[in-house]
Nucleic acid binder design. Structure first.
Length: 882
RNA sequence: GGGCGCAUAGCUCAGCGGUAGAGCACUACGUUGACAUCGUAGUGGUCGUAGGUUCGAUCCCUGCUGCGCCCACCA
């Protein structure tokens, strides 16, 4: 016997899903779920929990439906984050900065990976995520390395990867280029300095230039004014002196200068600003680099400023300008500055040698794949974001100046000649051929590849590419990927581009984009705000199933999830309810009976619940096929709680719980008690088992536990088509009964009659079927509504239910006047609805243009409304007599 | 500046060309054999606003307002 209270801790840890996750079904249709590999440094947060739960539900559903499901787990090496983390640990443990070599650091990171890399995997298991952990892959494992290297070489040979000297966003703290996508703008307080640039002709005339970055003036190559700007037209072509140096630069005319901003004249620093870079190229200006890669000014600035950090230099420059009276004024402004996501320091535009992917070219088929519907986003509007980005995609800088990552397979000859090959030997061969010598000194490129470069190849690398494995053929392009919108650019777009390039085929037909998990006030969860909810804490407190169920029920596509503990508690309450359903079954001897045949059930209530279950299965399948896990959770909730617990169980209690029924109590049932009891027991067990089966994808732990209690092991998916039985009579009967009981209860409540106080009622209907139904179930009516069928003598109130008029004996409780008022109101309301429907039917356009179904429906409605109104009017008139 | 999303009950959200829905909260009553992590009943909404399309609009279209997000720019 189960405990009264459901304690997830007592059984969750007993279940592992590794066997079913690793089970292959070679003859079944393949289906793959591609888990977005978490960072090797990661630990499970609410966002993961949502993302993985949705995937796990899909994977488990597909497994039950008979697919050969491959749920592929992995870990991402996460270049910069991991390196920073391990470096920080080392420094905190006394390692001196600068003493780290590439070899030592890599060794330390591998050590870290081997020891802490499984944290998140263990946490996933707590949540019940059923990936095939035996197939765990790491983006930097040996096969991965080979594959990524090959992909790089292929792209290079096709001219889609090239090396170039370009301006990139540089992170001075990390000492690496960073992706355009890994930049966040922050609004900070800043100044706008108005600086006098004296004309070189010693006339004493000057032009005022406004800048937020005075320290970059050493890199100035020109001052630009707008061609149409009258104020400065006479100065164009003249030379000015760069303040604090003797260098002369020209005043040029370029439409980049905006007369509205600052002074209308802008200093052009081509080597340290993206816009100025363009202006510089357009006007053939020199690119004067004044900064080192660590953010200090270099030897191209006056000695006194050399090797000063950029921010210290700024103050120093302003100070000097002030002293030389070259500063006209200072304005306080709020400005937005790009910060590196990883290091949280302001980034610096720098001209550097980098490797680039020709993303424009790869984007063309990637755009087409979504446009033609080969790939669908769910919800669809995310496709807009995808298009917007890909159609304006810029060259993708894939080199990073760090050590942890896939090293770029390029070697340089003594003269800087590049040799790209999958191995050193391959490069050497090329070099030997190139130089015509036997031996050449080759040095490998120091840089590593952007983490997302390897992530883009994940869908086929995990399947064994470049080897043409059976799995690759079987599962590639048969997968679903579930992820947050924030990595559509980073990951989804790259997987599609790389997939089409390497495999000549899209990797997946469906991309499910889920929302963000926020706190109950709609704020992002963040450590600094202190509103982070830890999924593992919730799992411990409420059970993994409750967390999964809650997330599923809230995962409406395209919407963020506002989570609070209360909602998890509600989820847990539902599972407690289910738990007690099984407890009830146990107490009444309802266990799985494989001989049971639902078609042979001969009891209305049992037939009714069988059809409820059938409808549930149909609804769940439909929702599941649209990935609407929220709907699935709700369907199950309502069927179990509303239909099964609140009605069915109450109906059947006397059959199961009384050792014998008197003859007069037995009238409602068509069979001798022993058979009836067996039928009900079997039906009850059967229905519960179906509930458990459809709930399994969402709540695997408790379902396994309860299946065991119900006497079954396998959790096959139920087949709705096997329940295609004509039980419509029974359904009608039970619906009448339900309506009657509700109506009586409602009326008693309205009249302040306690529910358990017995009252007399008399059914009176033109429809004998209704009367008979009520008569047949009078015991149930009495028990559940406290209403005794019989002759009534005292003051009565007629109530109308859908099909019948019932008279209730209510003694003196009723106030005729208020009752009349209420009924008149109701009658008016119904009349209005009826008139509206009548008007429509009288409208020719409606009859012509509406579909036949709709017209029929309206006719029926008018009819039913008419009947109801008649009944109410009858009641009103009989009340008036009283 | 360009784009996207959202607006439905007190709160969180489903829904949808033809009766306005759920959970929570609230109110009243109840509860000793599945379950107080409970039961029964009830209160509560001109579906943001103004137009348009339609026989009919919460739903489709347009404008507006408010909120959120993305991209670009910012001397």
């Amino acid at each position: 016997m189960l405990d009264r209270i459901f304690n997830p801790e007592s059984f969750e840890k007993n279940f592992s899903f590794e066997i079913e996750a690793s089970l292959r079904k070679p003859d079944a249709e393949p289906f793959m779920v591609l888990l977005p590999p978490p960072n090797v440094t990661g630990s499970l947060h609410m966002g993961h929990a949502l993302c993985y739960t949705i995937q796990d539900i899909i994977a488990r559903y597909k497994r039950l439906k008979g697919y050969d499901v491959l749920f592929q787990p992995g870990l991402d090496h996460a270049g910069i984050i991991t390196q920073l983390l391990v470096e920080k640990n080392l420094y905190e443990n006394g390692v001196e900065k600068g003493s780290l070599t590439r070899e030592i650091l890599l060794k330390e990171i591998w050590f870290f990976k081997e020891n802490s890399g499984s944290t998140i995997l263990d946490q996933m298991k707590v949540l019940g995520i059923s990936c095939d952990f035996a197939r765990l892959r790491f983006t930097m494992d040996d096969e991965g390395k080979k594959a990524i290297t090959k992909m790089f070489v292929d792209l290079f040979n096709d001219g889609l990867i090239y090396r170039g000297r370009r301006m990139v966003s540089w992170d001075p703290l990390i000492g690496s280029a960073v992706s355009d996508l890994e930049i966040s703008e922050k609004e900070v307080d800043g100044n706008l300095w108005y600086i006098k640039y004296m004309l070189a002709d010693s006339s004493g005339e000057y032009i005022t230039v406004a800048t937020t970055r005075p320290e970059t003036l050493f890199g100035d190559a020109a001052v630009a004014v707008h061609p149409d700007d009258e104020r400065y037209r006479h100065l164009v072509g003249k030379e000015v002196l760069v303040p604090l140096t003797d260098r002369k630069i020209r005043i040029i005319s370029d439409k980049y200068a905006n007369p509205e901003k600052g002074s209308g004249a802008v200093k052009i620093t081509p080597a340290h600003d993206f816009n100025d870079y363009e202006v510089g190229i357009r006007n053939r200006l020199p690119m004067i680099e004044i900064m080192n890669f660590n953010g200090e000014l270099n030897e191209n600035v006056p000695e006194i400023f050399q090797f000063t950090d950029r921010f210290a230099a700024r103050e120093k420059v302003v100070d000097f300008l002030n002293k030389k009276e070259l500063l006209e004024k200072v304005e306080k402004i709020r400005q937005k500055i790009p910060f590196g996501d990883r290091s949280d320091v302001p980034l610096e535009p720098m001209i550097t040698h980098q490797w680039f992917v020709n993303a424009e070219k790869l984007a063309i088929p990637a755009i087409e794949a979504v446009e033609t519907g080969k790939i669908k986003f769910i919800p669809k509007h995310w496709e807009n974001l995808y298009f917007e980005w890909l159609k304006n995609v810029r060259p993708w800088c894939i080199s990073r100046q760090i050590w942890w990552g896939h090293r770029i397979p390029a070697w340089y000859g003594p003269d800087g000649q590049i040799f790209v090959a999958e191995t050193f030997e391959g490069a050497m061969e090329k070099a030997v051929g190139f130089y015509g010598k036997n031996k050449v000194e080759l040095t490998q490129d120091e840089d590593v590849l952007d983490t997302w470069f390897s992530s883009g190849a994940w869908p086929f690398v995990v399947l064994g590419w470049p080897k043409q494995t059976d799995e690759l053929k079987r599962f590639y392009s048969k997968m679903i990927v579930v992820t947050g919108f924030d990595i559509i650019f980073f990951w989804i777009a790259r997987m599609i581009m790389m997939g089409i390039y390497c495999m000549k085929e899209v990797p997946f037909p469906d991309v499910y984009i889920h929302g963000l998990v926020r706190d109950d006030k709609g704020r992002k969860m963040s450590k600094s705000r202190g509103n982070v909810i830890n999924p593992l804490t919730l799992c411990k407190k409420y059970g993994a199933d409750a967390v999964r169920y809650t997330l599923a029920s809230m995962a409406s596509p395209g919407r963020d999830v506002r989570l609070n503990e209360q909602s998890v508690e509600n989820g847990r309450n539902f599972l407690t309810k289910l738990w007690n359903v099984v407890r009830f079954a146990q107490m009444n001897g309802c266990v799985y009976n494989k001989e049971f045949n639902i078609a042979k059930v001969n009891n209305s209530v049992a037939k009714w619940i069988i059809l409820c279950v059938r409808q549930l299965i149909i609804d769940v399948e439909k929702s599941m096929d649209n990935y609407r896990v929220d709907e699935v959770a709700n369907h199950i909730y309502h069927c179990v709680w509303d239909s099964f617990c609140d009605w069915y169980m109450e109906f059947i209690k006397p059959v199961l719980q009384q050792s014998a029924l008197r003859d007069d109590e037995r009238q409602g049932y068509d069979l001798p008690l022993t058979i009836l009891k067996k039928d009900i027991r079997d039906t009850t067990a059967w229905a519960i088992i179906q509930f458990l089966r459809v709930l399994y994808p969402i709540c695997p732990f408790i379902v396994k536990k309860l299946c065991g209690e119900m006497g079954i092991i396998n959790t096959a998916w139920p087949d709705a088509s096997a329940i295609d039985l004509d039980f419509s009579e029974a359904v009608r009967e039970v619906e009448v009964l339900k309506t009657l009981i509700s109506s009586v209860r409602s009326m008693k409540q309205y009249l302040n009659i306690p529910l358990n106080e017995k009252i007399n009622i008399r059914a009176e209907s033109s429809d004998k079927y209704i009367e008979n139904t009520i008569l047949k179930h009078k015991e149930t009516v009495q028990r559940m509504a406290g209403a005794v069928l019989g002759e009534i003598s005292k003051q009565t109130v007629p109530i109308v239910i859908d099909e019948a008029v019932i008279h209730m004996e209510v003694g003196s409780k009723i106030n005729i006047e208020t009752e009349l008022e209420r009924l008149t109101k109701e009658s008016d309301k119904l009349n209005k609805t009826r008139e509206a429907a009548l008007l429509r039917l009288a409208n020719e356009d409606f009859c012509n243009k509406a579909t036949d179904d709709v017209v029929e429906e309206h006719k029926k409605r008018v009819e039913t409304l008419g009947e109801k109104i008649q009944k109410i009017d009858y009641i009103i008139s009989s009340l008036k007599v009283v």
